[in-house]
Design a binder for these strands. Structure first.
Lengths: 348, 348
DNA sequence: ACTAACAGAGAAAGCGTTTACCCAGCGCGT
DNA sequence: ACGCGCTGGGTAAACGCTTTCTCTGTTAGT
């Protein structure tokens, strides 16, 4: 009979009254507690809660307990498959531990990233995962570290994805090694004249991949002249424009490496729009192995990163739910990468 | 001198003491308040906060105010570009209003969706946005509605995306009309023998698109026999398998319509793997206009939905920050769709 | 000069939880 | 019989904020 259509949600108080027990007993029966409570009572409380449509107010709980069930995830762009795949992993792992994930986007803007971290600290998240593209030499870098350190000092845990950001825990991606292996594999396929669409110079991931690629080529005695390195946005359109620029330069090239897959997709489209058949005229390779690159034509050669696992692992690393202590460096070494040769780079 | 490296974050209390003012004054200076506070004091407080690295504890604030700054977003799969684009819109609009977005994934499972809604209610979000694929005839449908109603009774606001879910606010997508227009356009291009890879029968979005498409064909006197409708998963792999099944049936078809783009991408790959050139042998069309379909070959004909806008609008609809009252139905009618003809459906 | 009106600081009562502490009842060993 | 340790319910004090209300000091009106 008790219609719950009141103006504000039922409180634990209401439940206790309804069940005829004390607040303490109600709390103990509904949300776990070290103390036992008589099964009869427990039953009564649970039923009362049911009847009133009670749900624990997580905020109040957090205040009382002094700890939350929140995880904050920062990404550069949630619509980018790279980040959304990572997010999927984080969310999945989080829900296993009954944690709630809040996502914020930074748009690859260091200032905004800093602001976001500050704002998110207000949530007192258990964990903060930074998947955004780390930049080098940003004036905000130091401030960010300070902010994060003080977050850790006050009981939070931070995890980075991609580059080592000691002293913070990191899920290391072997950007350098992966790119090197790719370069070697391509050289062995017979490619000789390379160009790289490299993304902004200050994005560390981009830089590492470029370095690794260049190193791999060097092992085969192939050099990568500076004019064959084109910096552009870390996005699909950046890749597209980078390829256009390359073409306009008149350079003779038999393979274009874009430092990530979304850029590579842009490259493929740009080549095609310029009347060049990707994979026949010029080979194209990317990095990340986002889902779509299997489905474009030709399928893209790339370096595979198990993105969802990376997200999952970042969370586990931070919560310490795997690999022993959360501060054990970065778990068992960097995430392995794998070179995947597909149709976009046939043997020459 | 005051090193903040304590074990727990600075509280407003600490700030007040540091600044030599009362708690009330500190609160008023840091977080907005109707009351004015002397500029001298305000300054002192702000500096003290700065010095101590204070950030408002949002949870405590929420408890005290009885209202939160949280928005909950439920999606079927965050790695799916359809949902991640919508999420991007929601997050963008939310951050404009200084709201924080928590994302949960339901995996198209009605039971899990219900559980998630229940769990999320504990967060007392201002708004709950359901972008998951609504299903029909689910046993959980009624329970879900009850749960959501009681959420609204206690001051929350819910917004659906896609199908009308009266009495809840909805950002209506014109699935039916869009599919109809597409069918008409394709018929006018000269296609005659259609098949549809239709997704699970119980997903409403899928069903509406199928119906609309079929109606459009009917206008041109073309019928869509039941054996040309293949139900499969609402995913890329679902599309792939659906196309395989279609091919195996030996049906003569000149156009395959997949009810969403990720499925269409699967269809394209399946055709190609079967040695059929998509766009030449058989036309392919999708629905949604996710970013990738411009970049596959041939570029995919589809029905465009401004996904980010949809997300943005869902949030605004729920917070009432646009189009007058939040309960004004669904704002200014359904989101317009647009048929986009690309290379995958050349004139026959 | 005297009071009315107003500003604005501070004290204290919430907000919805958890949990330390108190205390009654009970079974047990001596 | 008696004390003692458990068990487990209840009371009340936190938790970190906001906000109502009280109260003092100013300003202005007559």
């Amino acid at each position: 009979m008790s219609a719950p259509a009141s103006k504000s949600p039922a409180t634990l108080h209401d439940v206790a009254r309804e069940a005829g027990v004390s607040l303490a007993t109600a709390s103990r029966s509904l949300n776990g507690s070290a103390r036992k409570v008589n099964e009869d009572y427990r039953q009564r409380v649970v039923e009362a809660a049911q009847r009133l449509g009670y749900t624990t107010n997580l905020f109040a709980q957090a205040v009382a307990k002094g700890s939350t069930t929140t995880v904050a995830l920062l990404v550069a762009d949630i619509a980018d498959p790279y980040f959304s795949s990572i997010a999927a992993g984080v969310i999945d792992a989080a829900s296993e531990e009954r944690l709630v994930v809040t996502i914020a986007v930074t748009g690859r803007d260091a200032q905004r990233e800093l602001d976001t971290v500050r704002a998110l600290r207000g949530q007192r998240p258990r964990v903060m995962i930074l998947a955004g593209s780390r930049t080098t030499g940003s004036a905000f870098e130091a401030e960010l570290r300070t902010e994060l350190s003080s977050f850790e000092d006050t009981g939070g845990k931070v995890a980075f994805i991609s580059q080592d950001a000691a002293p913070f825990a990191t899920v290391l991606l072997d950007n350098r090694g992966g790119a090197r292996d790719l370069a070697v594999a391509l050289a062995e396929l017979g490619y000789r004249d390379f160009a790289v669409i490299a993304g902004p110079a200050e994005i560390r991931t981009a830089q590492e991949r470029l370095d690794g690629f260049s190193a791999g080529l060097a092992e085969h005695g192939i050099s990568l002249p500076a004019e064959r390195i084109i910096h552009s946005d870390f996005t699909r359109d950046g890749g597209y424009r980078g390829a256009q620029e390359l073409l306009a330069s008149g350079a003779r090239v038999d393979l274009v490496f874009a430092v990530n897959d979304v850029m590579a997709v842009g490259v493929v489209s740009a080549l095609r729009d310029a009347g060049i058949a990707p994979g026949e005229g010029i080979g194209v390779a990317g990095f990340d192995d986002i889902p779509t690159v299997r489905d474009i034509t030709p399928a893209l050669t790339t370096v595979r990163i198990p993105l969802e696992d990376v997200g999952r692992r970042a969370l586990q690393l931070a919560t310490g739910s795997a690999y022993g202590a959360p501060d054990a460096g970065g778990g068992p070494g960097p995430i392995p990468t794998e070179t995947i040769i597909r149709g976009s780079t046939p043997r020459r």
